[in-house]
């Protein structure tokens, strides 16, 4: 199992290197001149040239690349032009916001989609099966930013049930003591109920928008996979042995059916990482997605590169987790390696 993970990790290294090269080239090819932007509208050509020299942008590309790699190896992602802060610290402070939103949405989606899919398969053709079909159809046909905007409009603007879509916490509340960076967990750990409710009510709309979006593929895959497994020979053996319906459905069928669901989970998670950028923009969520969008608008290379690199690492970690889960469930994967 450990060997399996190590070999997967080794195959991931070339893709990380590829990402480093491609993002470097892409950011250099983006329209816009960071020096001009930084210098401001009224700056003279000399001032702009001076800034360009200071930023190292007057050097040839290969030289810039070598300098960039050198910095990377020291764990230095450069500084943001707009804030002057090191990109590493900025990403580190914003990552928990994105992670909390994404994970919360994913857990919500899994908690609904998997029982729904299992029930739809076990009670095929009943109302629960039809509900499952409606939910999955609705989920795939609603783009995530649209659901987000719609929710903000209905639940904040019209109904006033939800707080204003302005970030992780109401301005009048102070953030809970930093432990994990996840507001829900930190406030729960410190017993800060006010912050907990505040964070939860801010989190609800963006998380539900993302959950609805990820629910569809998960429920559909769970249902399909359960149906296939329930029709297989070994389920007939289990029934012929008189095993209770609970054992048949959960211990025998579900554990086998969960394998393709894990794969879908990985796919959904990577969709969500992308959807983050949209949702964070709609809800002014101070995560890395919004950070990257702002940096992109101002031709601020370093944060964009940092963002893409962080995403690449997250994808690698995600795939390793999926492989690990797969090996945990399926002995054939575990023993093959």
């Amino acid at each position: 199992m450990l060997n399996l993970l190590l070999s997967r990790l080794a195959t991931a290294i070339p893709s990380i290197v590829g990402v480093v090269i491609v993002t470097f080239i892409l950011t250099r090819m983006l329209p816009g001149d960071p020096a001009a932007y930084f210098a401001g509208l009224a700056a003279s050509p000399q001032a702009i040239a001076e800034i360009r020299t200071k930023l190292g942008l007057d050097k040839p590309l290969p030289e810039q690349f070598v300098a960039y790699i050198g910095d990377l190896l020291h764990g230095n992602l450069g500084n943001s032009l707009s804030t002057g802060q090191p990109v590493v610290t900025e990403i580190a402070t914003r990552l928990p916001a994105s992670a909390e939103l994404t994970l919360f949405a994913l857990i919500l989606a899994v908690a609904i989609a998997i029982p729904l899919g299992v029930l739809a398969a076990v009670k095929q053709g009943t109302w629960i099966d039809h509900t499952c079909r409606i939910v999955t159809t609705a989920g795939v046909s609603l783009p995530v930013f649209f659901t987000g905007l719609l929710f903000a409009y209905v639940f904040y603007y019209l109904l006033q049930w939800a707080p204003a879509p302005t970030g992780r916490l109401d301005v009048f509340l102070s953030a809970p003591t930093h432990i994990t960076g996840f507001y829900l967990i930190d406030s729960a750990l410190t017993g800060n109920l006010e912050a907990f409710w505040g964070a939860l009510s801010q989190l609800a709309l963006p998380a539900i928008s993302m959950a609805i979006f990820s629910l569809a593929p998960l429920a559909r895959m769970t249902r399909g996979s359960m149906l296939a497994v329930l029709g297989s020979d070994f389920i007939r053996t289990a029934r012929a042995s008189g095993l209770s319906p609970r054992t048949v459905v959960f211990t025998y069928a579900f554990r086998n059916a969960v394998l393709p669901v894990i794969t879908t989970l990985g796919m959904v998670f990577s969709f969500l990482l992308g959807a983050n950028v949209l949702i964070e923009t709609v809800f002014a969520w101070p995560g890395i997605g919004l950070y990257a969008v702002n940096a992109l608008i101002t031709s601020d290379y370093a944060p964009v590169q940092g963002f893409v690199l962080t995403m690449a690492v997250l994808y690698v970690v995600l795939n390793l987790t999926i492989d690990f889960l797969y090996g945990l469930v399926d002995p054939r994967v575990r023993l093959d390696s």
Binding site: D233, F234, R236, T237, Y252, D330
Partner: peptide, 10 residues
């Protein structure tokens, strides 16, 4: 088909 009649992951 004894191979498919048994639960493959138990």
């Amino acid at each position: 088909n004894p191979r498919t009649a048994l639960n493959p992951i138990r």
